[in-house]
Amino acid sequence: MSFVEYSDLIKDGDVAIVHLGHNSVTPVKVQHGAQTQTRYGAIRHSSDLIGQRYGSKVTCSKGGWVHVLHPTPELWTVSLPHRTQILYTPDIAMVTMMLELKPGSVVCESGTGSGSLSHAILRTIAPTGHLHTVEFHQQRAEKVVEEFKEHRVDHLVTVRNQDVCKDGFGVTGVADAVFLDIPSPWEAVGHAKAAMKKHGGRLCSFSPCIEQVQRTCEALTEQGFEEIRTLEVLLRVHNVRDVTLQLPDFGPDPSSSQASPEAMEGASTTASPNQTSVRIKTTTLLREMPGHTGYLTFATKPRT
């Protein structure tokens, strides 16, 4: 198992994702002899997990069952321990495409936060790219180093515990792309530019507030960035539902009295419930949904 490479079987030391049903998932560190409690009872790692195929159904001690999934950055995003606000998959997908990330890309990121985006970046730039991620909070930086190791992506990433606005990314002229998710991105735009390759690259800044966007765009223009675009992307989930809708009863229609007698008979007995309502398959939207995550500002650094 690794976050950048699939394996078939669950091994000791892997991080597996337990799917509890209804899109609820939780990560589990697989260890010989260990047990994990779920609402369906305990999962015994040695007998239930190790040696099993990813995707297998595992019966827990109380008789309920779960599926054990191979980790992916997307499953990690919905199951990771939050230490900060995190980026979710719709924004991550947009960032990845608009920053033009691909295998071999060198990326700078700040702040690392809980590492939700970092894992997605690493997946995309492996096996030849590198991520330089800067986090000013010491415990968070240490914790994420540990996670990268457990997820077997540590060879692709350098974590620096420093303030990007003061000290920059710790690299110059190497990055194809820079991602900023910090309170005052405009203070880091100069450092971002310095970190980027001479021939140019792409930058993204994520900010929840429009005032931050405003100041960042000004800083980007000042620093000679081009193609500055701000956008917002939201996910809408459509839940599939069977719904039954009543039909109105206008009473007997005298004008159609010449209709076939068997139809009339049918109406009085078996067909009547069918005629008072129809069942359709449709989708419904959530009553409430995340309506704002942050504005994504993208820009191109020209050749300098």
């Binding site: 799917h19 599926h67 999934l69 966007v213 956008l231 917002e232 992307v233 939201l234 996910l235 989930v237």
Partner: peptide, 21 residues
């Protein structure tokens, strides 16, 4: 299969200019 989901995304672009965003 698990985690089945039907989704679509909503995308909006912004004009960002001093006092005219």
């Amino acid at each position: 299969t698990v985690n089945l989901m039907i989704t679509d995304t909503w995308l909006r672009h912004y004009q960002v200019l001093p006092d005219r965003t």
